[in-house]
Structure formats: structure tokens, C-alpha cells
Design a protein around this nucleic acid. Structure first.
Lengths: 115, 115
DNA sequence: TTATATACCTTGACAGACGAGGTATCTCGT
DNA sequence: ACGAGATACCTCGTCTGTCAAGGTATATAA
């Protein structure tokens, strides 16, 4: 069963930027990669994905262009910008901090925990 | 500077249940504990806190009662229920899973990472 | 020709976080 | 006596990200 949307919230843009960090890609592929890498337990729905692309492009974190496919459905490709890399680095640090803070609040010695 | 609300979203109820897991408490105290334990970097705003209390009580995860303070402002105390403990355990497992999945998606060998 | 996969997009509803506002009691300094 | 600040509760309306549901179009396999 999939994870609740609320735990994803605030992380979708970071996840997208991570996928674009090393090479360009397009929406459908990114969505599929996330599904596969998480064993189907995590899914960015299309509406969520495209909403995030729009925000990221408005913020100057990514740029998009239509691919010149000669066959099959057309694709809109995305590239990360320098600003996008900075934003990814920042959001990754914030995520690490949030993780540790939340863990510190919910994990006690008595109950213990395994990661 | 504080963490973005979206990273908190979906975790506020778990954090509250964690605080109530071992002993009863009241809203103001829980808010203060979270602020202090996180060194001020994480804050559950009052509106957020009381909204979460209402949902948790509606769901049967906590019960509330007015304290019999003879001095000072009155307090509404909360106790966790057996259902609340189950719900906490469930949400903690879900949180651990979400953490690991998101980390796997954003942390690559090349970039590396420290917790 | 029908179904499935690929690939894009938009609209409206929903829910949780929060800013801003309110009430009331007690203590401390002036 | 008075005002400021801490304690302690609450509500309303706004904002924003997620998603369900719907749509378009092309290629391939049954």
C-alpha cells in the first residue's frame, strides 16, 4: 500500500530535481522511475508531477523544451539550471535536518528504533 | 530559520502522540516541548496544534478533560488511548519507510551524504 | 478494431498549516 | 494601581500542494 500524500508533500520538487541533477528527462519517465525505484510504494501522480514542473520552471529551477521525436508521442524534456542545483542542495540539507528533528521527537530510548 | 510547513505536514499527529505516549500533557506544554527539543528550529503553531488535537480526539486516538487548576489559566489535558498507541506505532513505521524511500531517491553515490 | 502503453495537459475538490484575531488568569516591576 | 509578559485556551479564513477525474494524441500488439 502506498504512502500517504502528506508525507510526500514538500519533497516532490526535491525528488524531481534529484532526477534531473545528472541528466535531462521528461515527465512520464520521471514518474515511472520513481515508481520503480520505490517498488511501487511511492507514486507521484501526474497532476502532482506536472504541477511541480510548472512551479519549478516559474522559479527558474528547470527549463523545458519539446523533444524532436520522429515517432511516438511527443515529449517535453526538462533540464536543471544552476539555480535548480542550488535549490536542490538547499532542500536536501533541509530534508536531512527535518528528518533528524522529527526522529528526535518521536523516537525515545524506551521504545527504541531501527532504520 | 524554521523548517517549511510542508515537511512537517503529515507528521504533526505522530509528534503529538509521541509526546502523549508516556504521560498526559496539555497543548501549551506540548508546543513548548517541541520548540525546546528542536532548539527552536521546529514549531507547531497553535492553530496547527489545536486542529490536530480535534482530529485526534474525533478519531478516538486521544481523550481530553479539563484540569482542576486552582490557580493560573485553566488547562485541557490529553491522554492517549489504546487506539492512539496503535496509530502511533503505525505512523512511526510509515515514517521510517517514507524516510528510506525518499533518501533512496535523492541521495546518489556520486553526491554522497551524511546524516 | 480494440486494448494497452506511451506521453502530455487541466479543472475542481480537499485537507492541513498558519496568520490574525480573540478571551482569561497570574506574576512581576514600577 | 497599572501595564507588560507569560501562561493557556480557542476560531475563522486563507493559502497551497495533492489528487481524482477528465481530456488529447500516437504507436503497437492482439
Amino acid at each position: 500500500m502506498a504512502l500517504t500524500s502528506d508525507l510526500l508533500r514538500g519533497n516532490t520538487e526535491m525528488i524531481i530535481l534529484a532526477k534531473l541533477y545528472d541528466r535531462e528527462s521528461y515527465g512520464y519517465e520521471i514518474g515511472k522511475m520513481i515508481q520503480e525505484k520505490s517498488g511501487g510504494r511511492l507514486e507521484l501522480k501526474e497532476a502532482t508531477l506536472y504541477g511541480a514542473f510548472r512551479r519549478l520552471e516559474e522559479d527558474g529551477c528547470i527549463v523545458s523544451f519539446w523533444g524532436n521525436e520522429t515517432t511516438g508521442a511527443r515529449r517535453r524534456y526538462y533540464n536543471i539550471t544552476p539555480k535548480g542545483r542550488l535549490e536542490f542542495d538547499r532542500s536536501l540539507r533541509e530534508w536531512q535536518e527535518a528528518k533528524n528533528l522529527i526522529d528526535a521527537l518521536v523516537i525515545t530510548e524506551k521504545r527504541g528504533e531501527a532504520t
